[in-house]
Design a protein around this nucleic acid. Structure first.
Lengths: 246, 246
DNA sequence: ACGCCCGGTTGATCGAGATCAAGGCGTCCC
DNA sequence: GGGACGCCTTGATCTCGATCAACCGGGCGT
């Protein structure tokens, strides 16, 4: 594979296997990365990084779900990102964390010591290009979320969240022909509320309403069955065709 | 200046003078850029780019103010970005615009034909690194805005918007010792509402309230005098020390 | 001079979602 | 078993911002 651009899922040589550093990895880059990486584990509910912490590493999520959040002095909090496996934590050229990073489930991250990682960025353009792509994708997601936060109703917010998680979850497994989907909601009602700019009571009420109307079904508290994804999409307020595109 | 990293404001050789492509420009890069650039002008109120348009260029704002916005089918709209001189429009690797770009004042942009620009990205890492920095800054701004949209009151939103514009405006002119600042609000009440996730009536009422309480003064409709920036900051809900930092 | 339009202001009322409060159901630990 | 705790649900009420509506003033074209 030396020097050839390869697909993430075929990248069997790579010990890390994450978009951030592997999508276009080359063997000599991998050797460099090997020498600067180490793993950290966190348990569900644990705050991995506090806003204001000194960061001497960047990292990539390996397993689990984490959130990025901001809190005001009086306790109001807003989630500003959802971190899933392959998502990147930290930023080259900055060493104080601006957000809280909290493990939702048990989480393993692969850390890279910051200085050598930044040096590598300068010498190997592939990694920088991949980071740029990822940052722009994050920016699109943030802007989509701004529309949700600023203009959607509580019901639309809930439907959008479920639809987004469902889409992401089922894009790996190829779309199911019957139209029915089953999705794990990794978040508590409170975390959903912090993501959507609502209170947990409103989240609970709106989930109940969608259930009552047969748009979703619940299996336990955290598993959602979507009988017809198109019916759910109608509740999101989004136009039918697709996501962000500058 | 060949091959040396130079500061934007000293970059007198550069015909474009924008962060996007000049912060670390080198003479041979500039020659490349020269060959692929052209200018476009738009008048106030004009929509420069519609969501869905084919983009065969990327661009950098030279003069004026423009907005990036999303609209739902029923007309609800949300601004997702404010474009000021030196801000970048478009994204390498994508050719359909996902947002509306609207000129607020008369606007001049410097366009670069897309294919050659993308080729240049591959060959000259400086430009890519600069774009990554800019994208990450935009991401921070978007996340700060998510907190505002999700969790702040109308009054806090207005105060935050004025404070942000004031800060940005006066960072060029070194901070004024007396504490008094004077700021041009480039946006109409409706545009402010679309930015803040409010209605124009609420914006008007809250601006009036801040004026009535002496926190701001108005000079005409569009110029704001801030007698004491710290008093205004107290109304934003932000904690005293500073912006985002992963 | 006139009317018109655009952007802004202010008032009255309404309603979605916040807030306050009570209670239900698992799970864990003593 | 039984309490304690975490997470969720549901009800009653309140409130902030939306909505509907009237009006103001300046710029512009005729």
């Amino acid at each position: 594979m030396n020097k050839s651009v390869i697909d993430l899922n075929e990248c069997t040589n790579c010990p890390i296997r994450h978009r951030a550093v592997c999508a276009r990895c080359e063997t000599d880059e991998l050797e460099q990365l090997e020498s600067m990486k180490y793993y950290r584990n966190y348990s569900a509910g644990q705050t991995m990084i506090w806003a204001g912490d000194k960061m001497d590493f960047v990292a990539s999520v390996v397993v689990g779900v984490a959130t990025l959040s901001q809190t005001m002095e009086d306790g109001r909090t807003q989630m500003v990102g959802l971190l899933l496996p392959s998502d990147f934590i930290g930023r080259p050229g900055r060493d104080i964390a601006p957000y809280n990073v909290t493990a939702v489930s048990d989480v393993t991250v692969c850390c890279f010591r910051k200085k050598p990682f930044e040096n590598m960025l300068v010498t190997t353009p592939h990694v920088g290009q991949r980071l740029l792509e990822m940052a722009l994708d994050e920016l699109d997601a943030a802007r989509e979320w701004m529309l949700l936060l600023g203009r959607k109703t509580a019901r639309e917010k809930i439907a959008s969240l479920i639809a987004i998680i469902a889409r992401r979850d089922n894009e790996a497994k190829s779309a199911i022909p019957g139209g029915q989907m089953s999705v794990d909601l990794p978040l508590t009602r409170e975390a959903m509320a912090d993501y959507l700019g609502l209170t947990l009571e409103t989240v609970s009420r709106q989930v109940s309403a969608l259930k009552r109307e047969g748009i979703i079904e619940l299996e336990g508290k955290r598993r959602v069955i979507i009988p017809d994804i198109d019916v759910l999409m109608d509740e999101t307020g989004d136009d039918s065709d697709g996501g962000p595109l500058i």
